[in-house]
Amino acid sequence: MDDSVIVSPDWLAAHLDDPTVRIVDVRDAWEYDGIGHLPGAVNIPFDSYRDESDVDRGTLPGAEAFAALLGDAGIDPDDTIVAYDDTHGVFAARFVLTAIEYGHDDVRLLDGDYSAWNREYETTSETPEIEPTDYEPDPLEPEESPLVGYDAVADALEHDALFVDTRERDEFEEARLPGAVRFDWREVVDEESRRLKPEANLEELLADRGITPDREIVLYCNTARRISHTYVVLQALGYEDVHFYEGSLTEWLDNDGEVESGPVSAE
């Protein structure tokens, strides 16, 4: 597993004293304050960087709004960011994807979540002192971005792209993109340890669904939250040709895109 994408609790524990490693807790403020958090972590709640008004593509908050959040948290563009939540990383992965889109070079996901960390390492209720920064975003150019829109997805349906639906079975059976395979994002998580399954197990799980590094892959769900986690995992496993349908099924249906429904015998 590439630790430039996903880091273990042991890695993070060894870097707690590094001032260039900034830990971001994306849980609600009451969890951060009332339950505790990782030492040195700053709080940037999920709702603060997800904007349903579509000021940018999908539910991205816009480059300037996101930069203001990072600046208020005292983060510099050169810092290494490690994000976590307490939901197996799915909300933190959305933060990772957003930071990548707006040009932060080094942003990583913590393997596991707050509960996984808390089993081995101390937490705190002390809020770190923050010195705000003047964070300047550097959004990716469209050709550099993993995000794709409706037209690109429609084009991908005409060639050998593999559409991966990361939702639950009942959602998948109700409506899905034509030819899509289902891979519930939670399948990569070990429920007992709350961390990712071993790399060999992940590769086997993915290969069983035909999700292999040689394929062009388009990920979607309903509103692009769950695919964030799958996207980060695939990146950590070395997958290179992975597209992220930000509008997901919500946009697809709004545009009267073709769908399939019903059970799939191979599921």
Rank of each mutant, 00 (worst) to 15 (best):
P77M: 05
A156I: 02
A14Y: 05
L237S: 02
A99R: 12
W185E: 01
Y121R: 04
L253C: 07
A92S: 02
R215S: 11
D76W: 05
I23R: 03
G179H: 03
P142L: 05
L16D: 10
A116S: 13
F183Y: 15
G103Y: 02
V188I: 05
V189S: 10
T124M: 11
G62L: 11
T98W: 06
E191A: 11
F244M: 02
E120I: 01
V96L: 14
W252K: 06
I130G: 12
D138F: 00
P77S: 14
H104D: 00
A175Q: 07
D78Q: 09
V164C: 03
D85V: 06
D17N: 10
W117M: 06
H229Y: 08
T166P: 02
D78N: 13
G58S: 10
G103Q: 03
G262L: 05
I100D: 12
V259M: 01
G210A: 04
A99C: 09
T80C: 14
W185H: 09
T166V: 15
D76M: 05
A13P: 03
P263C: 01
D165F: 02
P213V: 05
W30F: 05
G71T: 13
R169F: 00
H243K: 13
A161R: 07
F91L: 14
F46T: 05
D56T: 09
E31M: 10
V7K: 04
Y32R: 08
P39T: 14
I217H: 11
E129K: 06
A180K: 00
V189Y: 07
E101S: 02
D28A: 15
V7A: 04
E258F: 02
P77H: 12
L60H: 05
V233A: 00
L177M: 14
Y135Q: 03
L16T: 02
G103C: 04
D155I: 01
L177Y: 08
H88R: 05
D3A: 10
D111P: 03
G149L: 06
